[in-house]
Design a binder for these strands. Structure first.
Length: 643
RNA sequence: GCCGGUGUAGCUCAAUUGGUAGAGCAACUGACUUGUAAUCAGUAGGUCGCGGGUUCGAGUCCCAUCACCGGCUCCA
């Protein structure tokens, strides 16, 4: 192992041959998108540079530098200016700076093709060379509208009209180009040294699908060409972790044309999934949940009662059987409501925590599908908690803590969002206010920072969402806690209170993993396919040196299997170097090399995927160390090199 | 669903202006019996995503369709 000293003085141990990118990724979660340049002992290196000895490593972040935003914003103006020069009929919409770059939305008769990006880039280079100064000026509203109307910029006029009464309306000028803009910018176009237009996309005006679709061009820019190169390299490195790529390489899951959005779990992926389920049951058992299972398909009447038929009919898989409409469940809640109603409940029973690993199907739009992250069939680790009004806060705190415990087990960092009442919601103001207050209170009392999304709640209640990030920095909702004041009412759920009267229980709906499949996708990217030993589909790979070692290898295999260890034997007549290489590419945590020496002494020669050759160990020592690693769900190897 | 792109052997990729599809790895067979990241030789493998059309001739051009990739929208 190497000792890597970081800029802040902390020391990190990594395996020899680890890339600078991997270190960066492990420091900032998967948010390595911020890491633009690495420097080893003060010397700048590529992110794919392999660390071979102890060193000081710094990861330089352009994001952190002042002016990154202004820099990109100016780049977007230069792109708009270039587009206007090349395609004068173009109307400008909006062009902001974003993480990693910028974009601009255009409305033009000309259909942009990828080759246009090069032309536009070339024109941008000219504008950079022209050294145009950026000048800011303000106009009163009426003049501003007139100014933009004269230029034929209808979108800008609409934007100005929608600005608040007291807004200052500012413009930036660079040469012959003027754009409505609040700022801020660098002082001259010549500061933009390195720019690349990265992609072409459609985007609805103002993000509304009923509006016209505009043409959006994405780009990125940096103060130095070397930083751009490093950024592009970083993207390539990140793509190596893509769960779709690794899932195929390691035989974890498959997506087939025969079932778009319906993932197939292959034996190795199923092993991972089963270990997740085992862990999940353990955690929920400890937290006093009971587990149920409800049918995959239920009749229309149920979905009308729940409100899903009205709200989500188009996204449900419906079918008619014996002249009756049925739908495959898109959620587990209604089934759970029926289970609740199978018995009378007393306030003394509360809270009731009813969990279900439910397979749900949702007909997502074809364009929304994405590997395991966004699918049409997935397994929710669902639970519904029924409780009294004064138990809400504690229950929510309990769930937040449970989700936190689960994520910590995997070493994930996450962020939390609180979404409030949307427009097409059901329920009274009073219910909504109470529900939103309960969620907010729980988050505040836990001291959790959260992002507020006004109007983004579910139609039946507000929610707390937990988001994890993929290898390219896109975030995905995983855990969620939703307070539901609708379903108990619609299903007329009751419990008998202290007063002997019937009352309506409070219910929350929650998931921790969210979708097991999506969580697996995140896991694959987090570990780059190198699952910790408790999750690894194959924990130990046995490699024989020669055919005469097969009997002893089979003996070792049987003994490991008896201990509940997942083993695979490679007894092919290949050279050991070749077998090791293949096993290493399969990313399993341990290899045991079996040759004359081992067979004679009854030992095992251990190799770790992370550390390399460890040396010979007594069989029991190996097994016990591995079992304790698995039992603790350790994220790191507990083995050390035998000297 | 919308905008743009891609689709050739199990995988990763080639194939001049339209002229009968090729490599590496994997697989299979044989030899080698090997000590910590690739042994050698041979064999087999493709209706070029699917369906139309243009043409003497289409992997190459056109239309339609499916899937995937990047966005947008959506995400109970």
């Amino acid at each position: 192992m190497l000792k890597i000293t970081l800029k802040d003085g902390s020391v990190k141990e990594v395996q020899k041959g680890t890339t600078v990118y991997d270190v960066a990724a492990s420091i900032s979660g998967r948010l390595a998108k911020e890491a633009v340049v690495g420097a080893v002992n003060g010397k700048t290196v590529d992110l794919s540079y392999k660390l071979e000895e102890d060193c000081e490593l710094s990861i330089l972040k352009f994001e952190d530098s002042e002016g990154a935003h202004a820099f990109r914003h100016t780049s977007s103006h230069i792109m708009a200016q270039a587009v206007k020069r090349l395609f004068p009929d173009t109307q400008l919409a909006i062009g902001p700076a974003i993480d990693n770059g910028f974009y601009y939305d255009f409305d033009t008769e000309h259909k942009f093709v990828p080759e246009d990006l090069e032309r536009i880039e070339a024109e941008m280079q000219k504008i950079v060379k022209e050294d145009l100064k950026l000048e800011r000026f303000e106009l009163p509203r009426a003049e501003a509208i007139k100014f933009m109307a004269e230029k034929g910029e209808a979108y800008k006029v609409e934007l100005i009209n929608d600005l608040p009464e007291d807004a200052i309306i500012s413009f930036y000028r660079q040469g012959d180009f003027v754009d409505l803009c609040a700022g801020c910018h660098v002082s001259s176009t010549k500061e933009i040294k390195s720019v690349k237009l990265t992609s072409l996309a459609g985007a609805y005006w103002r993000g509304n699908e009923n509006n016209k679709m505009l043409q959006r061009i994405y780009g990125t820019s940096f103060p130095k060409a070397s930083m751009l190169d490093a950024y592009l390299l970083m993207l390539e490195e990140a793509k190596k972790r893509d769960h779709r790529k690794i899932g195929k390489e390691l035989g974890l899951f498959a997506l087939m044309e025969e079932g778009p959005g319906f993932p197939f779990m292959l034996p190795k992926g199923m092993a991972v999934k089963n270990n997740l389920l085992k862990y999940w049951r353990e955690v929920h058992d400890k937290a006093n949940y009971v587990e149920i299972e409800t049918p995959i398909m239920l009749n229309r009447h149920l979905w009308e009662t729940s409100g899903h038929w009205f709200h989500y009919k188009d996204n449900m898989y419906a079918l008619e059987i014996d002249n009756e409409d049925f739908a495959v469940k898109p959620m587990n809640c209604p089934g759970c409501m029926l289970v609740y109603k199978t018995a009378m409940h007393s306030y003394k029973d509360f809270p009731i925590r009813m969990a279900e690993m439910g397979r749900v199907h949702r007909h997502e739009l074809s364009g929304a599908l994405h590997g395991l992250m966004r699918v049409r069939s997935f397994t929710q680790d669902d639970a519904h908690i029924f409780m009294l009004p004064d138990q809400i806060k504690d229950e929510i705190i309990g769930v937040v803590n449970l989700i936190d415990e689960v994520y910590k087990t995997f070493g994930f960092s996450y962020h939390v969002e609180l979404s409030t009442r949307p427009e097409n919601s059901m329920g009274s103001d009073e219910d909504w206010n109470r529900a939103e207050a309960a969620l907010t209170e729980a988050l505040v009392s836990l001291g959790i920072n959260y992002k507020l999304n006004p109007g983004d709640g579910a139609f039946y209640g507000p929610k707390i969402d937990f988001h994890l990030m993929d290898c390219l920095g896109r975030t995905w909702q995983c855990g969620t806690i939703q307070l539901d004041m609708q379903l108990p009412q619609r299903f007329e759920l009751t419990y008998i209170g202290k007063d002997g009267e019937k009352h309506q229980p409070i219910m929350i709906h929650r998931v921790a993993f969210g979708s097991i499949e999506r969580f697996m996708g995140i896991l694959i990217e987090e570990f780059a396919g190198k699952f910790p030993s408790w999750l690894a589909p194959v924990q130990v790979k046995l490699l024989t040196i020669a055919d005469r070692h097969i009997p002893y290898a089979e003996e070792v295999s049987a003994k490991l299997r008896a201990k509940g260890i997942r083993v695979e034997l490679d007894d092919r007549a290949e050279k050991i170097g070749y077998k090791i290489r293949e096993a290493q590419l399969e990313k399993g945590p341990y290899m045991l090399i079996i040759g004359d020496k081992e067979a004679e002494l009854g030992q095992v020669s251990v190799r770790s995927r992370d550390i390399g050759e460890l040396g010979s160990l007594e069989f029991d020592v190996f097994v016990n160390t591995l079992l304790s690693e698995v039992a603790e769900r350790s994220l790191k190897t507990k083995f050390e090199k035998v000297e």
